[in-house]
Design a protein around this nucleic acid. Structure first.
Length: 555
RNA sequence: GCGCCUGUAGCUCAGUCGGAUAGAGCAACUGCCUUCUAAGCAGUGGGCCGGGGGUUCGAAUCCCUCCAGGCGCACCA
């Protein structure tokens, strides 16, 4: 329908051009249609005349008058009006809404699915937490956002792979192994001194305890270095298992768990560096090997191999991203914590050095979550030992509420998560408002069934024309917007648009429900309203599913 | 010092490729359950959109500048 109107406007403008109305316009521009806030301004409105007024040096009002007159024969329009200083307000024929609802219902559970992505292979990497401790609330935000982005992209027609990158080697793992080892020694009655840079969390002791009950105390007789090797393997595997479990409870599933270690096992680090060398972006200086990332706008060149011969973390990173490219992804999306934003330029430099377009890589930054308890900041950080895990949050407020909460903010906005507040809010949490919309609709269906009514499988658009209340048309209009919300959300990688869309839909439904009875003596009207509810319920369920939130039949 | 993000109602946040009277939730106050779920609805109050300048028919939105907060600026991971 939007397209019909756009075309009408454009052909009207073409006519005006042919009639010599404009002095130096050769082609009609595509008009922008927007929904006015107030109903008096029509169902849709365009500002095209003001735009043209400027470029053509004509009075916008004059253009609008002519345009409006020419639109009078558009078949979907009731009328069009001109408003100062040059808006054209469009009023759509009531019968069109019925046709629109029919279209939506015909698509059913597939409504909102787009072909936008053209099956292009997209990889979304998110969470990628070090297996050195349980997931905390910041990871939860990344998980919720990354998962929702993936679902939305898939719904928009992309071929999506969800991936978790495991930093299962390097210094942090070394520190982890030593920390657990020392705690294990302590459990065996030895007095120990935890170095400054150890992990101090309580969970370290748990892992140590587990290790002993599983593997015994033979490690006490080993040399420290030897024992630490065993411990770091054991600890990182144990903690990774915990991470997987937490994500499972949070309803996040990954397609690929990619191990950093495997990059070395498959010699991919060397491969990536050789490739860079071949392309002339590698040089040696002061005993280190550098990547000339400044050639692509990075602030400084980056070291890949240190003077002591060790590879940097960034060396793993380019190998990993090289592998992403080799696997045929045309679009790479990294969901990173905002504290990583310094890495964007260098990774992008690598992508460009490999001959790809700059925007083959998109990075979504997740601002850190400030965790509060009754307004007081809670200290975070694995080292300090005191932190609130994602699991604790899920247990306190539930997975649905936590996910919804994360997805009601755009990801680059700071987020205060007050645990006490989140708990207190639970009964009035907006997530329930949306879920309630779905549950209520299901319950009305139950009731209708008892009374002998169902939403008919077969119907024609005119059967729906009795849905002529303002509230009903508003709901249909909103349902019709769903596709464009998916599109914007997919293009901008902004899942929060879907969240707000669902709150708005629920905000239209609940008052409608309260004011009007669905099931009445009037069979035609009852069935039409059941169909309207079917549309609203279906869209709510689809939206919630994209966000990874359940749609309960009963509440 | 440089770079990125943020500043909108008492609180938490939407709205930002310029549009008409700036929105939602929470909190506060007043009403509504013999009728499809009251996790709901109806209503009230609440705003120099951080400050100042500029661009124009029109600015929360674009440009400049200043202020405040967060995060980055390693041969660390």
């Amino acid at each position: 329908m939007l397209n019909i109107i756009k075309k009408s406007i454009m052909s009207a403008l073409e006519e005006m051009i042919a009639e010599g109305f404009f002095t130096d316009l050769t082609e009609a521009p595509e008009p922008l249609l927007s929904q006015p806030r107030t109903r008096g301004f029509g169902d849709l409105s365009t500002n095209i005349c003001m735009k043209l007024g400027r470029s053509q040096r004509k009075n916008p009002g004059d253009i609008a008058l002519v345009l409006s007159k020419k639109l009078s024969d558009c078949e979907v329009l009731e009328k069009s009006e001109v408003a100062a200083p040059g808006f054209v307000n469009l009023f759509i024929k009531k019968s069109c809404w019925a046709a629109l609802l029919k279209e939506i219902l015909n698509k059913g559970d597939e409504y909102g699915r787009l072909t936008l992505g053209e099956h292009k292979k997209v990889q979304v990497e998110f969470v990628s937490a070090n297996p050195t401790g349980p997931l905390h609330i910041g990871h939860g935000r990344g998980a919720a956002v990354g998962d929702a982005i993936s679902s939305i992209l898939a719904w928009a027609g992309y071929d999506v792979t969800k991936e978790f990158y495991i930093n299962d080697m390097g210094r942090q793992i070394e520190v982890l192994g030593r920390s657990v080892y020392l705690r294990a020694c302590e459990l065996q009655g030895k007095t120990i001194q935890m170095p400054e840079d150890s992990y101090h969390g309580e969970y370290i002791k748990d892992v140590a305890r587990e290790f002993i009950s599983e593997k015994g105390s033979a490690f006490m007789d080993m040399r420290e270095a030897e024992a630490v090797d065993i411990f770091k393997e054991y600890a990182s595997e144990t903690l990774l298992r915990g991470i997987r479990k937490d994500l499972e409870a949070f309803h996040v599933e990954f397609d690929v768990w990619f191990s950093e270690k495997s990059l070395y096992e498959k010699d991919l680090v060397k491969k990536a560096m050789d490739e860079l060398k071949k392309r002339g972006f590698i040089y040696e200086e002061e005993g280190a090997v550098w990547f000339k990332s400044t050639a692509f706008g990075d602030d400084k060149d980056r070291v890949l191999i240190k003077a002591d011969g060790a590879r940097t973390y960034f060396a793993s990173d380019i190998a990993y991203h090289g592998d992403k490219l080799d696997r045929g992804f045309t679009q790479i999306i990294n969901v990173w914590g905002a504290d990583h934003h310094g890495y964007e330029a260098r990774v992008r430099a690598f992508i460009e050095a490999m001959g790809r377009e700059k925007d083959a890589l998109k990075v979504v930054f997740i601002q850190l979550v400030a965790l509060l308890r009754e307004g007081e900041p809670v200290a975070m950080g694995k080292r300090s030992g005191e932190f609130v895990t994602l699991r604790q949050v899920m247990e306190e407020v539930g997975s649905d509420a936590a996910r919804f909460f994360f997805l009601t903010r755009k990801s680059d906005a700071h987020l205060d998560f007050d645990l006490e507040l989140a708990k207190k809010q639970t009964p009035e949490n907006p997530v329930f408002y949306v879920q309630y919309c779905f549950a209520r609709i299901q319950s009305i269906f139950e009731f209708a069934k008892e009374k002998g009514f169902t939403a008919p499988e077969k119907f024609e658009a005119p059967d729906l024309e009795c849905l002529n209340l303002d509230e009903e048309i508003e709901i249909i209009k909103h349902l019709a917007n769903f596709e464009s919300v998916i599109e914007k959300s997919a293009v901008g990688l902004e899942p929060h648009r879907v969240t707000f869309y669902l709150m708005e839909l629920a905000g239209l439904f609940h008052p409608y429900y309260n004011k009007n009875r669905v099931v009445t003596e009037d069979r035609g009207l009852t069935e039409a309203r059941l169909l309207l509810l079917k549309g609203a319920g279906t869209v709510t369920a689809i939206g919630l599913k994209l966000l990874g939130i359940s749609a309960p039949e009963k509440m």
